[in-house]
């Protein structure tokens, strides 16, 4: 057993950084390639692809608190909806129609909603925690419904007309600008989140999921850390909501619904919790499946989605990405 000299460990640290950056570059390239393929293959369906991108941000955000920290929640759409209404309200009522300003306000609104729901949800554990999260999304839904002067109530908040991006690229009828805007946003968020989940803070969060008492015995504050993660998660969900508001130019109560919360959780479980790739793959699979199957069989598509989910939970409990990743890791270990 030798203690590495400082030179050794310094050089291994740099090479390590290079090794660990490579998956990020690959991840960005894969997302970009998939986005370009989507653009070329489905030029008439860019609205759906943009919607998938916005929901992917919601599912990534959910993964941060559920997958990485182990917090059970069925109320995460409250953060997404806060971002959507935040972006919509500044555009409609305050005339701030610059897409970046709308995005910024959406992120702030989402982060604030994350702070509030984090503080409430983290008061409890397990089943009571889940119930609190459901209560939050129902409350948020009801507040948005009642405050119709601001939100348009059940009619939705219409009349959102974002300016051209950089004053150059108008949000066009085919949704090209919105799509590119959304993909660039997703890639930026992905890169930032990769940093966060790998950082000491991310490691602390994984520790909390695995044994909160041990984290306390190390002298770290469990709730303080989780609230921070909730705020980050809220910012990401808020970005998703703002993207949805900018691209569809309307915000409806469905963006604050229990259904959306539950669907996000289903997508996350489908793709695999505790991995950013799992969140992306789960969203893409679920929404693509929903689109194809509901077109083919509008009456029974939910039955088919249900069957798919049961199959995944029973036969691939780590989710689609988790199962594939575990299979590759096992193969690598066997061959090594």
């Amino acid at each position: 057993m030798t203690v590495p000299t400082s030179k050794d460990s310094a050089s291994s640290a740099t090479s390590d950084r290079r090794v660990r950056l490579r998956p990020d570059v690959i991840g960005v390239l894969v997302i970009a390639a998939a986005a370009i393929a989507g653009y070329l293959l489905f030029p008439n369906n860019l609205a759906l692809l943009t919607r998938i991108t916005a929901i992917a941000l919601l599912v990534l955000s959910l993964d941060l608190v559920t997958g990485y920290c182990g917090v059970a929640t069925l109320g995460h759409a409250a953060l997404f909806g806060a971002g959507a209404y935040g972006a919509g309200i500044v555009a409609v009522h305050f005339g701030m129609t610059d897409p970046f300003a709308m995005l910024g306000f959406g992120i702030i609104a989402g982060a604030l909603a994350g702070l509030v729901s984090g503080v409430v949800v983290l008061r409890a554990h397990g089943l009571p925690q889940l119930v609190l999260s459901i209560a939050i999304v129902h409350l948020a839904h009801e507040v948005a419904n009642k405050a119709s002067g601001w939100t348009g109530g059940s009619d939705g908040l219409a009349g959102i007309t974002p300016d051209a991006v950089f004053g150059l690229y108008q949000f066009d009828l085919w949704g090209r600008t919105a799509y590119v805007f959304g993909i660039v946003l997703l890639i930026l968020v992905f890169v930032v989140l990769r940093q966060i989940v790998r950082s000491p803070f991310g490691m602390l969060c994984r520790g909390i999921r695995q044994d909160p008492l041990r984290v306390q015995a190390l002298g770290a504050s469990v709730n303080g850390t989780l609230v921070k993660m909730y705020v980050i998660s809220g910012a990401v969900a808020g970005a998703g909501g703002a993207l949805n508001a900018i691209s569809t130019q309307v915000v409806g109560l469905d963006s604050l619904s229990f259904t959306l919360s539950a669907e996000a959780l289903v997508m996350l479980v489908l793709g695999g919790t505790g991995s950013l790739y799992g969140a992306l793959i789960g969203t893409l699979t679920f929404m693509w499946f929903e689109d194809v199957v509901s077109a083919a069989n509008p009456f029974h598509w939910l039955t088919i989605v249900g069957a798919l989910l049961i199959a995944v939970v029973l036969f691939a409990p780590k989710g689609l990405y988790g199962t594939i990743a575990a299979w590759f890791a096992g193969r690598k270990r066997r061959s090594a």
Partner: peptide, 21 residues
């Protein structure tokens, strides 16, 4: 993680501990 916590660096959100010599 224990060392980072002792030094008050466990809340850092950027950079892996592996890059901290």
């Amino acid at each position: 993680l224990a060392i980072l916590q002792r030094e008050g660096r466990s809340g850092r959100m950027f950079g892996s501990h592996r890059a901290m010599a």
